[in-house]
Computed example of a mutant assay.
Amino acid sequence: MTPPPLGRMTTYGLEHIGVLALIVACSVALVLWSRRTERARVDRALRVAGWVLLVDAVLWMLWGFMPWAWNLHESLPLHFSDALRILLPLALILRRPWMIVVACYWGLTLNLQSVLTPDVNYFVWVPMEFFQYWFSHGSGVVLPVVLIWGLGYRPTWRGCGFAYAATLAWATLAFTVNMSLGTNYAYLNRAPAGPSILDLMGPWPQYLLVEAVVIAAGWVLLTLPFVLRDRWHPAPAVGEGGLMRRAARPAQSSSSA
C-alpha cells in the first residue's frame, strides 16, 4: 500500500520561482564560461559533471527501491525525466551523438514541462526529495543549453527524427507498463494532478495524439534555425549518422567582439 504523501510542492510558490531563477542564472553563466574557456577544459569539466550526475542518479534509483521509499507509482524509472537522469550523464561522459541529441531534445522540451509545471509529492524526507527533483530536472535544462549554445553542438533533421523515434519507443514501453500495473509513468494514461500543459490538449486519450503532434512541430521549429545556420556557416558532423554537428569554436565571434 502506498503511504500518503508528507506534502506537495506548490507550483509557482516561492521555492519554485527561486529555483527557476537559479536555472536561468546557471544557464547564462555556464554558457558564457564555456565560450570564454579553452574547449578541452570545458569538456573535462562536463565529463566530471557527468560522473557526478551518474553516481547521483544510480544512488537515487536504488533509494527508490528501498522498503521505506518504495512506491509503485514513483519508483520505477519510466518517466522521461528518469531516462534523462541516466542518458544525460552518459552523453557528457561518452559524447555519443545519439545520446547528446536525445538528451538535448528531451531536456529542453519534455523535461522543461516538469520544470515549469512540477507534479511533486514528498513521501520520505522533504529536503532530500526537493533537492533531488531539482538537481536532476534543473541539470536537464542547464546542460543541454551549455552543449548547444556553449559548445556549439547543432541538431540536424536526422537527429530530430532519431530523437522523436526514441521518444515514441520510450512512450510505448512506459504505456505498456502503465496498462499492466495501473501506473501513470510519463503521464501517458492520465494528466498530472496539478496544472500542466496537458490540460490544454483535451481529455485522455485525445491529449496523447495532440501531444505527439505538438512535440513534432515544436522539435521542427527548434531544429530549423540550426539547419539554416549550418547552410551559411557549415559545421562538421559529429560521429556517424549525421545526427549532430559541432561548430569549430562558437565563441570566437563573441570573444573578438
Score class of each variant (00 low, 15 high):
105 Y>H: 11
103 A>T: 00
103 A>E: 01
153 Y>V: 04
136 S>N: 12
157 W>P: 14
124 V>K: 02
125 W>T: 08
107 G>T: 08
129 E>H: 06
155 P>V: 03
123 F>Q: 04
113 Q>H: 12
114 S>P: 09
139 S>C: 14
153 Y>R: 05
129 E>C: 09
138 G>H: 01
154 R>T: 05
140 G>W: 00
99 M>S: 13
132 Q>R: 07
148 I>F: 13
92 L>N: 09
108 L>F: 09
140 G>P: 02
156 T>M: 05
118 P>F: 11
140 G>I: 00
93 I>A: 07
110 L>F: 05
133 Y>I: 09
92 L>T: 01
122 Y>L: 09
141 V>Y: 02
144 P>M: 11
87 L>I: 15
128 M>L: 11
120 V>H: 07
143 L>S: 01
105 Y>M: 14
159 G>D: 11
91 A>H: 07
127 P>G: 12
100 I>A: 02
113 Q>L: 13
122 Y>W: 12
126 V>R: 15
117 T>W: 12
145 V>A: 10
130 F>I: 12
89 P>D: 00
89 P>C: 12
111 N>L: 14
127 P>D: 13
124 V>Y: 08
137 H>P: 03
123 F>A: 04
157 W>N: 11
109 T>F: 02
136 S>G: 10
108 L>A: 10
138 G>T: 14
88 L>K: 03
158 R>N: 15
117 T>A: 15
140 G>M: 06
98 W>I: 02
140 G>Q: 01
153 Y>H: 05
124 V>W: 02
101 V>Q: 07
112 L>I: 14
